[in-house]
Amino acid sequence: MKLLNEVIGNKLIVTMSGELDHHVAKSIRIEVDELILKKRTKNLIFDMSQLKFMDSSGIGVILGRYKNITNIGGKVAVVNVSDRVDRIFSMTGLYKVINKYENMSTALKHL
């Protein structure tokens, strides 16, 4: 699992590359939280296009960051979500609090 990050305006873009399971969840959490503090951006976009595998551990990673970001008044979005990951996200009602966009340009426009 590798994280790439980029800042565009007040948005932090985190691209998750590889396999997201319980084993890597903890370090990913810490890494993203550190990025949020360091980059001082308000909003967070997760780009899922490079994700090769995800189990339900991924939900905790996203919802946990959602809590932290809403504390500072920001928003969280996910983009490029595969059908499978979409099914797992839907099961938890993740989309009640997090917006999904088809691609990055749409997300950047709306967030």
Binding site: S56, S57, G60, V61, L63, R87, I88, M91, T92
Partner: peptide, 21 residues
């Protein structure tokens, strides 16, 4: 669905729901 005995670990409580799906 959504029940977890360990919410502090950021577990979502849908492991069994995923398996059943």
């Amino acid at each position: 669905p959504l029940y977890t005995s360990k919410p502090e670990l950021e577990r979502s409580g849908i492991g069994f729901t995923v398996m059943e799906t």
